[in-house]
Design a protein around this nucleic acid. Structure first.
Lengths: 186, 186
DNA sequence: TTTTTTATACTTATTAGTAAGTATCTTTAT
DNA sequence: ATAAAGATACTTACTAATAAGTATAAAAAA
């Protein structure tokens, strides 16, 4: 794959995660990369195309993370810690997550981007639900809600925490992330 | 106050909450209201002006809700139920909340809109934190985290749930909202 | 040489915003 | 009471800037 193409994908993702889908333009990308507007269109004919590719890349990254954790025989506790670390890292980098950035603009996205975003959220919730379920039967986790509700609750908290962290500085996010884990302790 | 002005405020808020701040234009408003672009500028000279006014209106609405609950001598449990009902209603109307709609676009907002949005979030979190604290000392609520963390956790869940509800249909949001309340039961 | 990659130079559509004018109502002065 | 002055609520008719997108040519790599 072309280096320029990868740079566009990376920069596009960063722009979505810092400014939002409808606030970034091909101009932003071409200026930053020192190329012309049309060069971006060469790799991604339309913005729909670029947006969809960015979401697909993120889905792939999530898949790879899950595969990697399985092959390294991570336990349930290690897995949820690894998952939460994604958000700790995003917070450190002052970026929202892709889901939190694209979801409010969902009604304005193109059909293919909508499909991929929905698929991404479904995948995350499915994985998290199954992890919580398995962890509870093995006494690694403890909670009263049904696993799907608990998964939604944890995921929502993580997504929204990043959105608010860009605005509120004084909040203690470290202990916020810790309390999500503490809450699952048996 | 002028009827047109109020219609612009209402429609603007709905556009932000369904499509996002950077995806709506003065054209959207003028077309819908059957007036001209310039007429919207007559009431709100700039988009910054309109955005800020919309947030201010919401702050006022929140203030009035709190005042109303105090004057009607609502208990802590009634108060948090009333608060959560706002999100149940938004969910029914297929709208995000203003905070969830504007937060991802925070970096692209004008200075005055940023200030008001931050103020709004601070107000909500302060109110919720104090409510949780008071409720716990009176044995109406039960939770282990410190009140500020718990407030952030509940607020995050509510904000993000609306964002996801616009995408995921099959999720049982009724039980999701209920589980937030159940979780606080002593 | 042929394909890939990029620049040049556009187009079309939309954006926020403005200047100037007008009809209608409201207040004030005579 | 009536005329003048001013405020209110717009419209008409524009900018300047930026958006996504494209046709074509040049350069670079295979």
């Amino acid at each position: 794959m072309s280096v320029t193409r990868e740079k566009i994908l990376e920069l596009g993702e960063n722009l979505i995660r810092t400014r939002g889908y409808n606030a970034f333009s091909y101009q932003d990308i071409s200026t930053e990369l020192g190329i012309k507007n049309a060069a971006v269109h060469y790799y991604f004919p339309s913005k729909e195309n670029l947006g969809t590719s960015i979401v697909k890349t993120n889905i792939q990254r999530f898949d790879e993370m899950v595969d990697n954790m399985h092959s390294r025989k991570f336990g349930e506790w290690q897995q949820i810690e690894t998952f939460i670390k994604i958000y700790v890292k995003s917070h450190r980098e002052q970026k929202k997550c892709l889901v939190g950035s694209l979801s409010p603009d969902y009604n304005t996205l193109n059909a293919t981007t909508k499909i991929e975003l929905k698929r991404m959220i479904e995948m995350i919730l499915k994985w998290l639900t199954e992890l919580l379920e398995k962890g509870r039967t093995q006494n690694v986790f403890s909670f009263n809600e049904d696993p799907a509700s608990k998964a939604l609750s944890i995921f929502s908290s993580l997504v929204a925490s990043l959105q608010l962290s860009g605005i509120m500085d004084k909040i203690d996010y470290k202990s916020f992330y810790q309390s999500i884990l503490d809450d699952l302790k048996p």
